[in-house]
Design a protein around this nucleic acid. Structure first.
Lengths: 188, 188
DNA sequence: TAGTAATCATGATCATCATCATGTTTAGGC
DNA sequence: GCCTAAACATGATGATGATCATGATTACTA
């Protein structure tokens, strides 16, 4: 059974989507090719018509997932509030790929790391625009510092098996970021 | 060949040490039981005399690794400087277990998560003591916010395949944490 | 000091996957 | 409308790796 061009594209999209969710939910290694294909409503054999290998799938998935989902024009404070919400913490499969996968991408192929790095760079630039600060350098610093804190907090909150501590990690980091006095003058 | 009590304890310690380094360097899944045992100068068969399973090893290793290495009395600013150094970023195998493993522990057994959570709680309390702030609540908030930023920054810096961006992530986060104006009055 | 059992080494086993081979159908080019 | 090859399904294959079975040695106990 050959398939129409559109159907093929649609299948590929479904595979990437399924892989993205599964990787975030379970980690790269815990997800099998068959798992992904089943979630995409296909059989495992069809996989190698779309990708060269599982590693290739990882790279394609990261590239696919990372470029999407960043609000074009965002407000850092508002973004931090959403990002550090319990809803986002609990939605690993649908949440931020960086928080979900950065910790594992260190051990992946150079191509995978490159895809994530591209997303990271873009993300920081996006955040810098709405970050507090008089000059561009202050803005960029605030963007990086805030972003690191957001990612770290969500990772720790998800890892914690104590719901109270988990909630506190989110809330305190939220406060810590949003209530930060803006640098009215550059020091040193 | 039976082994003396001390030798057994020593072997177990070596296994845990090797596992700790390997897990941080390669991730839980990428490390095999045989890898760990070889690194501990034993054969794979001896493994199950010490642990019930690989999952058990993970739990024991986390418990072993997490309790050690936190300076008893630390200065948050000084600690952040060391933590966010290029040396620490490059020493994954010997570096902070939280930065190296938190992102993967989410998908591990409840026992593993519990071990990491215990370490996290202790770490936050330790940091709170030297964190800036007039009252305990401010200190704790600063500790959590700073800790989240440190962990996030190191994870991102390790993930990035662009050395320049990686360095910048560390440096900016360092600045962001250490140059933060302390809250002289509580707002809202 | 003799006996016991613990500890480790060696060598299976058994399941899980990633990947490949083959067959079938039919979309798309001529 | 025909033919070719693309896209998928089904069913191997082969490697890897967690776990177990067995045996040898010797530290400990009585």
């Amino acid at each position: 059974m050959k398939i129409s061009r559109e159907q093929v594209a649609e299948n590929r999209r479904r595979i990437l989507e399924a892989a993205g969710r599964l990787f975030r939910a379970k980690g790269f290694e815990a997800v099998t090719v068959a798992d992904v294909m089943k979630a995409a409503s296909l059989t495992h054999g069809a996989f190698y018509g779309h990708f060269n290998s599982k590693d290739d799938l990882i790279v394609q998935t990261l590239a696919h997932i990372v470029s999407a989902g960043i609000p074009e024009d965002l407000d850092l404070t508002r973004y931090a509030t959403t990002y550090l919400s319990e809803g986002h913490r609990d939605d690993i499969a649908g949440g931020c790929p960086t928080a979900g996968l950065a910790g594992q991408t260190v051990h992946q192929s150079p191509e995978a790391r490159a895809a994530m790095t591209a997303g990271l760079r873009e993300h920081i630039e996006r955040l810098s625009r709405s970050a507090p600060g008089a000059i561009a350098e202050d803005k960029r610093r605030a963007a990086i510092g805030s972003w690191a804190a957001m990612v770290g907090a969500v990772i720790l909150a998800r890892m914690s098996d104590d719901p109270h501590l988990s909630d506190e990690l989110l809330a305190q980091t939220r406060e810590w970021i949003t209530s930060r006095p803006s640098p009215n003058s550059s020091q040193d």
